[in-house]
Design a protein around this nucleic acid. Structure first.
Lengths: 341, 341
DNA sequence: TTGTACGCGTTATCAG
DNA sequence: CTGATAACGCGTACAA
């Protein structure tokens, strides 16, 4: 009695409508140019009766067109990624594509496995938020003809279209703002930089801006600590504040670090901007609520997703060999009380 | 020259290894029980040389086993959903399944389209965070044999396994806590309730708890406003505080409303708990940072995802007709300064 | 231990 | 205007 559940095939429709599969197939693909009004009606009726829907697996297999886009992100639970994914999804949907999303947890092994699995399922293209540890593999994939766009995190050379925000410029500009605002010592709080381009670029911008304005290397102002270890963050913070000059400011490399810093500051009963200034990435909605409001850089995550998808779909549709290109979208600096001396 | 990019098929492998497809197929599926050590080695070599990977579309088509799970959420950009999705993904991955994620933006039309598309791609099961406006359709799908699990939002009758947090109990308990803490007027701030079960249940718990303790209906304490319209929230808040009794407390139906309320409170220069108490759903990381700390209910979103996936995979694997069941996971109440009179 | 031949549900090429 | 038939890439009885 489980045949009741089996989905009807094009054959059954054909039989019931007393025509051949071919005709049904034509109908399905809108090629009713050479079809009598009558058969057309009949087919329509039968399809509705049977609630027939074509099997996309078979269709994809035959046509080499799955209508699927693979998306691989490092951490879907971060607001940056989830909003990015939303942008990608909206754009893909608008073009009749669907997205398969995979989450790597920043694990290169998972990353490779997922990408392979996506390819195995014949996605037509990939949007990647890379860990940075599978670059050769990914480059080879690209060479084999798989359309690929990088989102947020770039490779050191331009192999693929890359959509990011203007990390360097924005960070540089923010550090300059801090200096103009009167801060004399500025610390850059980051988690392990590794090979993640956005972190690396932000750090470089920090170093360059400091060197430009303070006339000396400022590497000792970089604090690498684990955002998941609040004690670590607190210790680093106190250590930095312990230097005597001041006024001190702290820059957060990303939203997670920003949260840790805000927690540390709260725990230590420090008052902004009296005891220290705080600013950095990202604006995840709550930064205006922590008195006196935290100065933040707001990234256009949604737009990054949209542009990445647009670029990928463009590449998929016109098989031309467009040159790889970097698309940098502008973030915005939102100045609040935490950095107003 | 583009043949270079074409992926090798099982036939090519077979030819190159001088055996038949069958043998390759056996090799791929680990059935080397009847295979000479030698052919096995040879096949392995050829596969590596050609970098052959089986086409999952063909495989799925033939075997009726796609290894894909469809996930449909109302808003992927919300922390609740993105963490839920992470839990689902982790669990599915652990069982060798992949997830296709679709985002409905709470739009019933999109919801139906996506579900159909997922079915067309032969996902083996669905995890749904429903809008509530396609219930008949979904129920029919279930009747046709598609394994379905609901996450977070339930239907009014128990058609499917449903994984949620203990909304009623937790909300009731929180309202009781507020009353014990000394609040005399409690407002329930929500966006349009519609057919979303979690909102409805929380509201009911609020009403029941108030009635129980204040001995009268408290519907006038419910404020429906649009979280995207901050003015609306501020006006409603002032309106509520305008009543003379006090002390006043406000309960947020979800994390988005909580954020709006916190913003409204900041904008209006209100001080907690002096001017009002604030608590509710959700704990999205920042609530401890707004002085004096906001009392929140923390949902086990990740665990909801994990359990939903477990349940679905169980259903897929053992084709038995398990009875539909509700799995309620416990949230936790985190008491902070905002409600300590 | 290995191979032949057919089918999964579609689409495309031809012929009628 | 319509219908056989082959093919997409793989898995599996059945045969050898």
């Amino acid at each position: 009695m489980q045949t009741k559940h089996d989905k009807p095939t094009i054959d059954q429709v054909a039989r019931k409508a007393s025509v051949s599969k071919t005709t049904i197939s034509r109908y399905l693909n809108g090629r009713y140019e050479f079809m009598s009004e009558e058969t057309r009606k009949r087919i329509q009726t039968v399809i509705e009766e049977l609630e027939y829907r074509p099997n996309n697996l078979a269709r994809s297999l035959k046509s080499n067109h799955s209508g699927l886009i693979g998306v691989v992100v490092a951490d879907i639970s971060s607001p940056f990624a989830s909003i990015l994914v939303k942008g990608i999804g909206d754009q893909c949907t608008a073009s009749g594509y669907h997205t398969i999303i995979a989450n790597t947890d920043n694990d290169p092994v998972k990353e490779k496995e997922y990408i392979e699995a996506l390819i195995d399922n014949r996605v037509e293209g990939l949007i990647l938020n890379i860990t940075g540890h599978n670059n050769e593999f990914i480059i080879e994939l690209g060479a084999e003809g798989v359309p690929i766009v990088l989102a947020d995190r770039a490779m050191s050379e331009l192999y693929f279209d890359t959509v990011t925000s203007n990390n360097y410029q924005m960070t540089y500009q923010t550090i300059e703002y801090l200096i103009r605002a009167g801060f004399k010592e500025i610390s850059f709080f980051t988690e392990e930089i590794g090979v993640v381009s956005s972190r690396r670029i932000r750090m470089q911008a920090f170093l360059d801006a400091c060197k430009q304005h303070f006339q000396h290397d400022c590497e000792e102002w970089i604090r690498v600590c684990s955002f998941s270890d609040l004690n670590d963050v607190q210790t680093s913070l106190l250590d930095f504040l312990g230097t005597d000059k001041g006024p001190h400011a702290v820059f957060a490399v990303n939203g997670v670090m920003m949260l840790s810093l805000a927690q540390a500051i709260t725990n230590l009963n420090l008052v902004m901007p009296r005891d220290l200034g705080l600013c950095g990435y990202d604006d995840w909605g709550w930064t205006s609520l922590v008195p006196p409001g935290i100065t933040v850089i707001s990234q256009p995550s949604y737009q990054v997703g949209v542009e990445a998808a647009k670029r990928l779909l463009g590449r998929i549709q016109q098989k031309k060999n467009m040159r790889a290109k970097v698309i940098e979208l502008a973030s915005s600096l939102i100045i609040r009380g935490s950095t107003k001396l």
